[in-house]
C-alpha cells in the first residue's frame, strides 16, 4: 500500500530559484526538518592554521621582494620643476589615462563617483535575481537597448578620441553579440558559457577589462608629455 501523503518534503537551498520557501504542515503529520548536512570543521585549529600559513607565505614573498627591490625615491620635492612624465601610483594610472581625454569634472569626479555608486548598488540590483542569461528573455527588447547603449558609448568614446577605452568596449560588445546569438544549447562550450551570463556579469567584466587595459597603457605605454612610447625603448 502506498503512503497517501499529500505533501512532499524537499530540501532546497537554492535562493536564486526559490527565494522564499513555504512550509505546509498537514493535519496528520508533524513538521519535519531534513537537515541540510554539510561537512564542517572547527575553526580552531583547521582554519586558523591555514590562515597563519597563508600569511606566512605572503610575508616570505614580500620580505623577499623588499630585499631584492628598493622602493623608488627621487629628488626632493621641487615645486619649480614638474618631472616629465609625472605619473601617479600604478593603480591610479587608469584614472590618469582618462584625465588625458576628459575634463577633470568628468574623469576625476563623475566617473569615480559613478563607479563607487554602481559598486555599492550591485547587490541591491535585484531585477535579475535568477541570474538568467541577459538575452534569454525579452530578447528583442534587450537587444535594442543593448545596441543603443553600445553604439552610443562607442560613438562617444571615438568622438573624444579615446580609442584606448573604445577597443575594450568594442571587444566586450562583440562578445555580447555572440552571447545574444547563442543559447544554452549551443554547440561550442564558450557560446554556452557566454549565453548564460546576466547583465551584472557583463558590466563588471567590462569594468575589469577597461581597468586592466587603461592601467597597463598608463603604466607601460606613456612617456614624456603623456605621448605614446614603447616600454622596451626607454
Amino acid at each position: 500500500m502506498s503512503d497517501p501523503k499529500d505533501f512532499v518534503a524537499g530540501v532546497d537551498s537554492d535562493q536564486r530559484r526559490s527565494p522564499q520557501r513555504v512550509v505546509f504542515v498537514t493535519r496528520r503529520t508533524s513538521a519535519q526538518v531534513k537537515a541540510n548536512y554539510e561537512e564542517q570543521v572547527q575553526t580552531y585549529p583547521e582554519v586558523l592554521f591555514r590562515v597563519v600559513l597563508a600569511i606566512e607565505i605572503l610575508a616570505i614573498v614580500l620580505v623577499g621582494m623588499a630585499l631584492l627591490f628598493n622602493a623608488p625615491l627621487e629628488g626632493i620635492a621641487d615645486p619649480t620643476h614638474t618631472p616629465n612624465p609625472a605619473k601617479a601610483p600604478w593603480y591610479f594610472l587608469g584614472l590618469q589615462e582618462l584625465l588625458h581625454y576628459f575634463p577633470p569634472v568628468v574623469a576625476g569626479v563623475l566617473v569615480p563617483t559613478m563607479l563607487i555608486v554602481s559598486l555599492v548598488i550591485i547587490p541591491y540590483f535585484n531585477i535579475n535575481i535568477e541570474a538568467a542569461g541577459l538575452f534569454l528573455h525579452h530578447r528583442r527588447r534587450r537587444l535594442q537597448i543593448f545596441y543603443v547603449t553600445a553604439i552610443g558609448l562607442l560613438v562617444f568614446l571615438v568622438a573624444f578620441h579615446v580609442y584606448v577605452a573604445a577597443v575594450p568596449s568594442l571587444i566586450v560588445a562583440i562578445a555580447m553579440i555572440v552571447a545574444a546569438n547563442s543559447s544554452p544549447q549551443s554547440k561550442s562550450a564558450s557560446c554556452r558559457y557566454l549565453s548564460k551570463k546576466p547583465m551584472a556579469w557583463w558590466v563588471m567584466t567590462w569594468f575589469l577589462f577597461e581597468l586592466i587595459v587603461l592601467t597597463a597603457v598608463g603604466t607601460f605605454f606613456r612617456g614624456p608629455g603623456w605621448s605614446w612610447v614603447l616600454p622596451w625603448r626607454s
Partner: peptide, 12 residues
C-alpha cells in the same frame, strides 16, 4: 622653443 608652444608634461 623649437615648437614655439607651451607644453604640460602631465597630461599632454
Amino acid at each position: 622653443q623649437e615648437l614655439g608652444m607651451i607644453k604640460c608634461p602631465c597630461h599632454g
